[in-house]
């Protein structure tokens, strides 16, 4: 059974991927104590293990060091989460890449100004909303006839895409914006209500009023 | 044995990943004939199979449709390329993500103006050069004691990172810029001289004089 230490700051959606995967697999993940973001991950000791100094970062009990959130989630997962055939494994990689390339940049462009961690740019936000609409629509079409993204069980694809959508559903996808994505909403609400997911992200509240940039 | 059709335009480094993987695995990949980028991938028939309309896109002989270049490369690969243990598989995902997040954005920022794809931006290019230096240095440190990125054989990690570095080594990494990354150069030159790689990208010429933006 995999065990190890996860270096991350609190409420890190990327770290949630591995923490949720471990809930399913039984892997023993312990959040590294005393981790100070911006200090610990810049220390020589940390950079020796993780040269890019990025978090989340995982150090297994038997000394293996893995960076990049999708790789860590894969390592602490189990066979069910990883996919049962070459086709499913390829489809899981496809959805993990979809999350990183089609959702994440647009999600951060839209949500970061709302969180006050980036200047608001009207044009960029408008473009991000279009991109998010396209991504949610692609998910919606896919989930019209499917309960989960790959095969008939929850896999890393569902976990990674769900974690990457958390900021959107929490801060800006209000009722009005999300109502047309019926299948995506059904799938997302099912995921956040799995006990393994709740154990990590707690009770998730869907956005009621879209956050606005406060100059 | 996997067989199928690959939709792409010529000289697409993302498509090279799957084409090279197929050279190793023996998968039968045929480049879709009559594909016109900007038309075929916008047709209803294509969008029905590949809703995001992106290439490369793969349709297997038995009707499975896979988008995203890393997923296609995984599907057409073999067990050796995919990694032989959970740790190796996780490390391969880590390097594929490294290519997409640490190399690709900076490579596009630096090379696209040189190719005339984008406007030149002095500040962005300077930042990109720093990022490429960091990425090449991380590779160089890793390859000081290793021949390949994961384990003792060529895997998808080597193929994906090599393909993502092609534009840089071809257009801007001249002798002066690349000379300090001795281990990375050794690894890259070994990869491009593998017959399975040569069969796809042909004879690769390292950059002699860094391309400049021509206003």
């Amino acid at each position: 059974m995999v065990a190890g230490k996860l270096y991350t700051y609190p409420e890190n959606f990327r770290a949630f991927k591995a923490l949720i995967a471990a809930q399913y697999s039984g892997a023993k993940l312990e959040i590294a104590k005393g981790f100070v973001f911006g200090e610990t991950n810049k220390s020589d000791a940390f950079l020796k293990k993780f040269p890019l100094g990025k978090v989340p970062a995982f150090e297994s009990a038997d000394g293996h060091c893995i960076a990049e959130s999708n790789a860590i989630a894969y390592y602490v997962a189990n066979e069910t989460l990883r996919g049962s055939s070459d086709l499913e494994k390829a489809q899981i990689i496809q959805w993990m890449t979809f999350a990183d390339t089609e959702i994440l940049p647009a999600s951060c462009t839209w949500v970061f100004p709302v969180l006050g961690i980036m200047q608001f740019n009207k044009q960029a936000t408008a473009r991000a909303k279009e991109d998010i609409d396209k991504a949610l629509q692609a998910l919606d079409d896919h989930l019209l006839t499917r309960t989960y993204l790959v095969g008939e069980r929850i896999t890393l694809a569902d976990i990674v895409v769900t974690c990457t959508l958390l900021h959107l559903y929490q801060h800006v996808l209000d009722e009005a914006f999300r109502k047309s994505y019926v299948n995506t909403n059904r799938w997302f609400i099912t995921l956040i209500n799995q006990k393994q997911v709740k154990a990590v992200i707690g009770d998730f509240k869907l956005c009621e009023k879209a956050g606005e940039f406060d100059p | 044995m996997v067989a199928g059709k690959l939709y792409t335009y010529p000289e697409n480094f993302r498509a090279f990943k799957a084409l090279i993987a197929a050279q190793y695995s023996g998968a039968k990949l045929e480049i879709a004939k009559g594909f016109v980028f900007g038309e075929t991938n916008k047709s209803d028939a294509f969008l029905k199979k590949f809703p995001l309309g992106k290439v490369p896109a793969f349709e297997s002989a038995d009707g499975h449709c896979i988008a995203e270049s890393n997923a296609i490369a995984y599907y057409v690969a073999n067990e050796t390329l995919r990694g032989s243990s959970d740790l190796e598989k996780a490390q391969i995902i880590q390097w594929m993500t490294f290519a997409d997040t640490e190399i690709l954005p900076a490579s596009c920022t630096w090379v696209f103006p040189v190719l005339g794809i984008m406007q030149f931006n002095k500040q962005a290019t300077a930042r990109a050069k720093e990022d490429i230096d960091k990425a090449l240095q991380a590779l160089d440190d890793h390859l000081l004691t290793r021949t390949y990125l994961v384990g003792e054989r060529i895997t998808l990690a080597d193929i994906v990172v090599t393909c993502t570095l092609l534009h840089l080594y071809q257009h801007v990494l001249d002798e002066a810029f690349r000379k300090s990354y001795v281990n990375t150069n050794r690894w890259f030159i070994t990869l491009i001289n593998q017959k399975q790689v040569k069969a796809v990208i042909g004879d690769f010429k390292l950059c002699e004089k860094a391309g400049e933006f021509d206003p």
Binding site: G38, I117 | F37, G38, P105, T109, L115
Partner: peptide, 30 residues
């Protein structure tokens, strides 16, 4: 967490680069 998030390296310009790349190769191969 918001401060930590602020230090994340996100490719905000990705849509712009995707667009430019798509246009370039459509012209090349159109």
């Amino acid at each position: 967490a918001a401060d930590c998030l602020a230090s994340e390296r996100i490719w905000f310009d990705k849509p712009r680069y995707d667009e430019a790349e798509r246009r370039f190769y459509e012209q090349m191969n159109g």
